[in-house]
Write a protein that binds this DNA or RNA. Structure first.
Lengths: 377, 377
DNA sequence: GGCTTTTTATTCGAATGCGAAAAAACCCCA
DNA sequence: TGGGGTTTTTTCGCATTCGAATAAAAAGCC
């Protein structure tokens, strides 16, 4: 038997992440992924297997040589909660230790909801998930609307919950649940969801387009989500739009490209009172992808995407939110218009795609955060 | 005497950087800056002193306790070359081991210069610097125009040198000089220059505005210069401008905001044939900061800066190039207009300032790269 | 079946980096 | 002038991590 040194928590957590993501499948590949020596990696893996976090799941014969002893995460070792919310509803997901989505809970919030109601509702969602998830709760991720201070664990400001100012969420939730809690802005959480559950697993640079009740973006560069000096990176909704419009009628990008605004433009119907589900249904049924209104909407999107692309030189734009209902043809139109408007984009390989994740992307992203933050005790 | 372990090259280099930058002044502060233990730091410092890279320069008494034994770099331990060029001229600087600028060389290039003439001229500039710099040449940094592949060490493309395509600069220069050579796009090199020699030493997030023969920006986030997925981050010069202009007259941002274009707009004189020095002189003498043309120019800058600020949420914009001749009032006007156009910016603390570095910022930045890349043999 | 080749995993001695404690160097104050 | 307090630096033993060699496990080949 090998001696069992006191290994480093952080490295253990990183090792589990690599195995869970499938980037490392054996001791040797794990060693490469972690950048530590194979011998040390062996010790860590032994420890993790002894603690029932990992197990060996058969052999994998390469073209030659000793077969790898495949590593996998033990699904029942515990679970992670991911919770995302806005002023109207809370969505929570339970993810097992292998990163598999196991359960979803949704909860509608009353109008004019207050901060402490929200935090209570979050706790009750997690409690409901706990009824069916197996093993102990290991960590909680929160996708928080508005400005968020990730370091401090504080929700700074959100316009649509009246008293949402300086809410010490990590402390509130963490002290009740006794597990690590990690925060992220909800759009940036979606970016992480793409990394774990969507097409981002093979990408290191991409941008999330989030036309929802407003319009914001999240930028992933070199595998990291950009925060900004004041936690406000990607808050492009308040761009003046049209950018150089005639005097007097300057609005903001929000008013042109949010999900309801886009629907209003496309359908000609005032959708202010529309519920989110109706909006989705309407968009899904929308088929008129030829007219001048359609072109105008695509042109606006194309302009924004083009500007972004030339600043941060990222490959892929992933469309999220209700507008994904417009499907592939919407993204294709945007790409075409953008390349027509800005020939330089063609060389850069502009790509706009609809997300394959559904409405719970934010909660999934929050769960991803939880997984990334966790390390064995 | 302490035992002398075989220490890690990388960490030695990092230690020298910390001392040179002044972020670490003693063994203890260095330990904190490097994130290693004080005991290990002692060993590294001993080694560096023994090899004559560092020395102890007196004591520094705090308010109480044992005084720090101040560390400093040995200026004569060797020197770094920084070279920046475009199609018209080469600028080279020699920087001593302490990071002090010691010498500058400028060399004009003939019209229609070819790539191999440029590489030869770079070598001759370095040779000229070598005549007066003391100690061995340790490393060379190159600020290269156009697209650059930093990893591969290759200049990919530059429009104004006809055969500048896939130039393996690191190999060409490195094989002659037998020292490490490191590349960077020249605007991104300027960003590094601000970090070492300008106001960037206290900032972790800022943007360089580079209106020169074209218009580009360089973004520093969390102390790192953004590269982009295709080495093209910040290439905003080809934005359509005006962004939603009337049909037919769509131009690009280059045509509105490059240094010559700005001069043309301000002065009303066609400055196409103007030499760079004349341009600078003209701008320095320009005093009419009231008229509608001035406002129009500032508004264009304000729009660009506003958009950028809301995407990447960075604090400070540093203006570089000939337009710094317009001085503080130009930056102030831009700030004012931007805040008027986009009220959201006021909260974000938008700041636009002219660089204090002169025309050799690019070469200084290249030298900074060289310093960062170097580590003891 | 035994041999070589190839790849993965483990063993084991060596050494590097760490932590705790000691030492050093200075202050202040009686 | 000597003791207590404070901060920096060094000493020293220990333990984790590494590297090289070794073992293990399979394929291919004759």
């Amino acid at each position: 038997m090998r001696k069992n040194p006191i290994v480093q928590r952080e490295t253990l957590g990183a090792a589990v992440l690599q195995v869970r993501s499938g980037r490392a499948t054996s001791r040797t590949t794990l060693a490469k992924a972690l950048g530590i020596s194979p011998s040390t990696t062996g010790l860590y893996v032994d420890h993790l297997i002894a603690e029932k976090y990992l197990n060996e799941s058969g052999l994998n014969q390469g073209p030659m040589g000793r077969p790898r002893r495949l590593l996998s995460t033990q699904a029942g070792a515990g679970w992670f909660a991911g919770v995302e919310f806005n002023a109207h509803r809370i969505q929570a997901v339970g993810v097992d230790f292998s990163g598999g989505l196991k359960q979803t809970v949704e909860l509608l919030l009353p109008d004019e909801v207050m901060a402490d109601q929200v935090t209570k509702a979050i706790l009750s969602c997690v409690a409901k998930l706990a009824e069916t998830m197996q093993g102990p709760l290991l960590s909680v991720g929160l996708g928080v609307p508005g400005l968020v201070d990730v370091q401090a664990g504080v929700g700074l400001y959100y316009a649509f919950i009246p008293d949402w100012k300086q809410v010490p969420l990590v402390e509130i939730i963490g002290s009740k649940l006794k597990v690590p809690v990690i925060l992220q802005n909800n759009l940036r959480a979606i970016a992480l969801a793409e990394r774990w559950f969507g097409i981002g697993h093979s990408l290191n640079d991409y941008v999330i387009l989030g036309p929802r009740s407003g319009f914001g973006i999240a930028i992933v560069q070199d595998g990291r989500v950009i925060e900004g000096a004041h936690h406000a990176a990607g808050e492009v909704g308040r761009w003046p739009w049209p950018l150089m419009g005639g005097a007097g009628e300057v609005k903001e990008l929000h008013h042109a490209l949010s999900a309801p605004a886009t629907w209003r433009r496309l359908s000609g119907v005032d959708g202010r009172a529309k519920l989110p589900e109706d909006l989705r249904a309407g968009l899904a049924a929308f088929s008129d992808s030829k007219g001048p209104v359609w072109d105008a909407v695509c042109t606006d999107y194309a302009r924004v995407i083009g500007l972004l692309h030339m600043i941060i030189d990222t490959g892929v734009f992933i469309l999220h939110g209700p507008l994904t209902m417009l499907g592939e043809r919407f993204c294709q139109s945007i790409t075409d218009v953008a390349c027509a408007l800005m020939p330089a984009l063609r060389e850069g390989g502009l790509k706009v795609v609809p997300s394959t994740l559904g409405d719970d992307a934010g909660a999934l992203g929050a769960a991803s955060q939880a997984m990334e933050a966790w390390a064995p005790a």
